[in-house]
Design a binder for these strands. Structure first.
Lengths: 335, 335
DNA sequence: GGTAGGTGTACAATCGTTTGCACAATATTT
DNA sequence: AAATATTGTGCAAACGATTGTACACCTACC
């Protein structure tokens, strides 16, 4: 029972008016008579008429699609971010096309290409960890399509972005540890090439020196289970060993906690641990992880807000609009 | 620098042929001369021509969109499922429109309505927990749009579906506990109205009776932290108390473990616990959770496969195609 | 009563692509 | 040499909605 979809023509035929009259009546054009408008509206309602979106898109030369590229949907942070972005986009009549780069820069470039060809009207991208080449992004801008970075950005490009305040988060977390009385605070950092990692490290370093502490120890890790564990083992071997460790993210923190437990030390007492992100595992691990919450949902939402603004304002809105959202220390059991 | 997108007309003009010739040359129409084809292909390549997708969709009266409704993207299971479905769809040139019902039947109905109006070509739905009314789904079928249920289904509707074998998973998990020597195995079930919960319960019951055990204790819980905890406390008060608990899902299992620890009992020794789903928390909680893995990625992929088949075959493919994917017991520390 | 202005509606073009049909040119058959 | 088949290309319509322009009718004013 595939019922034929109602078109303007159907309404026009039934009312003995032209298609253009129906179209204008529905869009409340001032030159259409009141009685005609009423008749058209009534019939449109009765037949449950909806303009054919494919025809409208074609006519307007707009896809009403927004492309989103993230590293991996199955990470809670990104699925939250997407949810924020998608909800707002959908409220403005846009569909969202979600693509996953799997932290692979090459795939990212291919996805960008594909999205541009599919005529998305805007792009929201959380770039892969290793991505440093600006060329694909410059290409997007040159094609006239608005672009907003979220969570991660390429510095020096003047591209709008919404990121969380990594510096402030790490600074606050480190200060918290200092207020707790720790003198020897170590940092399991992320990769040296990732800007987020750099900011977090700097927050740590500055908090340490602000309070005149002398102990400072940083070990870089890519995210990789064994590396984080090796690094933590290394920290435990040092004498005197650190009283607290600020970790690059919750997964690193989890690994650190495992190693500490293996060494029969008590996390939260012998050694304090703070993570970063507030992934669900923070609440489910034992002891529960004290961590720096990144407002994933709000980040996605605000990045989309900027994108929608740019879409509305057209080309004049090329100036950079960036936001840095504050993080929040969530105190649980590990510190 | 918004460069005007290349159209067939541009190519036709440059080569002094008609638009239709260009169109046919590109689609390798047999009546177009070899030399003409070569010239057209060369220029199309050079100009990086891509057919305007909005025009093609409009012409074909196809949106190339597939709607997916899930309860909540931020649950790992669903983001995995989506990933499987999306990858396959994208390989076949379809976009996927992802919508979240938040386990709300009313919102689900509204989303279905909206997706139908947006002219999606097919629908893949993981229904909300409480959904029982078949009407919206019958409406989808009557509109001629293929529909596949995934993860959850409404029984007796003859609608294609891909679900995991809840019965077998629960049966195997219970048998495993029995082989471990447990005689008193309790079950923290989900809601009595949810079919998945019914199947899991039945698997538990049948395994118990197959092995001639007499102890059987079932407590129903909606998923809700306090309810699961109350239920677990109740189990601990019973004398003799159960030696093992099969939980409706990993979250219930986590709550159960918390309560057991509060009571100074050792999980995995005094009481064995098995969860369901294999969410990430299973690996991160302490002790690590033994659980029944549901193949989320494969479920999404296979549901999409059925949907794509129906899309390809058109209306003749109305018969039901259903799959039940086996689960797998992942043995960790709690049992 | 003629013109100006306002009101209500229809016609036709447009967006980019696809496709049935027509027609011309060439090749093949009788 | 004439009839027929084959090959290569162009014309035009179609999809559904929008919109500039034309036109008919009515009212009001001088």
């Amino acid at each position: 029972m595939v019922s034929h979809a109602i078109t303007l023509k159907d309404i026009a035929k039934q009312l003995n008016v032209s298609v253009s009259t129906v179209s204008r009546a529905l869009s409340n054009h001032p030159r259409i008579g009141l009685k005609t408008k009423e008749r058209v509206l009534a019939l449109a309602e009765k037949l449950n008429f909806r303009p054919n979106p494919m025809a409208v898109n074609f006519k307007n030369n707009k896809s009403r699609n927004i492309g989103i590229i993230i590293p991996e949907l199955a990470k809670h942070f990104y699925s939250q971010l997407i949810t924020g972005a998608e909800q707002l986009a959908s409220r403005h009549g846009y569909n969202v096309v979600i693509c996953q780069s799997n932290e692979n820069t090459h795939k990212e470039t291919i996805l960008i290409e594909a999205l541009l060809h599919s005529r998305v009207e805007g792009l929201l991208i959380c770039i892969a960890n290793e991505t440093i080449d600006a060329a694909p992004f410059v290409k997007i801008l040159n094609s006239g399509i608005p672009l907003v970075f979220c969570d991660r950005e390429i510095a020096g490009l003047n591209i709008s972005s919404v990121i969380s305040n990594d510096y402030q988060g790490a600074f606050a977390a480190t200060e918290y540890l200092i207020h707790k009385g720790c003198k020897r605070i170590a940092h399991l950092a992320g990769s040296e090439n990732v800007v987020n990692s750099q900011y977090r490290k700097q927050g740590y370093v500055d908090a340490i020196s602000k309070h005149g502490l002398t102990y400072q120890k940083i070990i870089y890790t890519q995210y990789d289970k064994s590396q984080a564990q090796v690094a933590m083992r290394q920290l435990l071997l040092a004498t005197p060993r650190p009283e607290a460790v600020l970790c690059y993210n919750d997964y690193v923190a989890f690994d650190a906690v495992e190693i500490i437990k293996e060494n029969e030390l008590e996390v939260g007492k012998d050694i304090l641990i703070i993570g970063f992100a507030d992934e669900p595992i923070a609440q489910y691990m034992t002891p529960k992880l004290t961590t720096v919450l990144q407002p994933a949902f709000a980040m996605g939402e605000q990045a989309m807000e900027i994108l929608l603004l740019k879409l509305k304002e057209g080309n004049k809105a090329r100036e950079q609009m960036s936001k840095i959202l504050d993080t929040q220390l969530v105190i649980r059991e590990t510190a």
